[in-house]
């Protein structure tokens, strides 16, 4: 990297609208060497620049097992994300990273895996899910629980169907409020726990989503016998540099952009400021 804060140029390959305000972009580094040399683990994130509008952190939503191009799924909610949503294939953005610690994939080998996501919390888990599917033999049973506010807020709708067809995989989806064409479960994510069998002793759980959802899901998992070390989540804070220098993301002396964003629940409860 020529400079800690300097972005590299990448080109938007494709875009796909997931919901009215969420879009997935596939990106390719313009420099072939950089493209070839880019390595990351699921759970890490990128600092994405929209030139003239600054940069913001986005989880890598694709898997390192699927080649050097990367995907991010972005919800539109501010200046930069507004500007990003005006861009499309062929346009150029900046990338810097990967940043953060990522999931410890090796520690998950041999375990049953439970993925619990709410809303825009699915992208980082998708990276891990793909990774697991691509190395399927190394892992045990996979359970994917996903919820969103309404049916139209669900992301990766087609993929959810694909995942369901894989061997030894259970996928359950719920929405807070039902909508046209929805005949599935209605209710907050924790209601899905009643629809699946979980073995706390052999499982690791990965939880991503809005803070309030994480809170309830974690409570539920602990009640079902999961050890706090075996429940793994990601934390979110305002970030500016992504490399542990600017102090925006601190919780106490922990830097979410360096020490995180992935933590297990024991680490999270011990965090204070």
């Amino acid at each position: 990297m020529p400079n800690l804060l300097l972005p590299s140029v990448a080109t938007i390959l494709t875009q796909r609208d997931e919901t009215p305000d969420v879009r997935t972009y596939a990106l390719r580094f313009r420099d072939p060497d950089e493209r070839a040399g880019f390595a990351f683990t699921p759970g890490q994130f990128l600092e994405l620049s929209v030139f003239g509008f600054g940069e913001a952190p986005f989880c890598l939503a694709s898997s390192p097992t699927r080649g050097p191009d990367v995907e991010v799924t972005v919800r539109r909610c501010g200046r930069l994300t507004d500007a990003l949503h005006t861009l499309g294939p062929g346009d150029e953005v900046g990338l810097r990273g990967p940043c953060g610690n990522g999931f410890d994939v090796d520690a998950a080998r041999g375990k049953d895996l439970v993925f619990v996501a709410g809303g825009i919390g699915l992208p980082p888990l998708r990276s891990l899910i793909w990774n697991v599917f691509d190395r399927r033999r190394e892992f045990g049973r996979v359970t994917i629980l996903y919820g969103a506010r309404t049916p139209s807020d669900l992301v990766y709708k087609d993929e959810l169907r694909d995942w369901e067809r894989q061997a030894d995989v259970t996928v359950r989806v719920t929405v807070d409020r039902t909508g046209p064409g929805w005949d599935g479960t209605v209710g907050m994510v924790p209601v899905l726990f009643d629809h699946v069998e979980l073995n706390a002793a052999t499982s690791l759980a990965y939880v991503c989503g809005p803070p309030i959802m994480i809170k309830f899901v974690v409570q539920d998992l602990l009640k079902r016998g999961f050890a706090a070390e075996h429940v793994i989540s990601t934390l979110e804070r305002m970030m500016q540099c992504g490399v542990g220098k600017c102090n925006h993301c601190c919780v106490g002396h922990r830097y979410l952009c360096r020490d995180g964003p992935v933590f297990n629940v024991r680490e999270i409860t011990e965090m204070w400021e």
Partner: peptide, 25 residues
């Protein structure tokens, strides 16, 4: 004290400058 933010000057004619700026916790 060294907290900072990063911001781009408004684009004009396809150009802008990325700046690091003092911020305050």
């Amino acid at each position: 004290c060294y907290c900072f933010s990063v911001s781009d000057t408004p684009p004009a004619d396809g150009c802008s400058t990325r700046c690091r700026l003092w911020d305050s916790c």
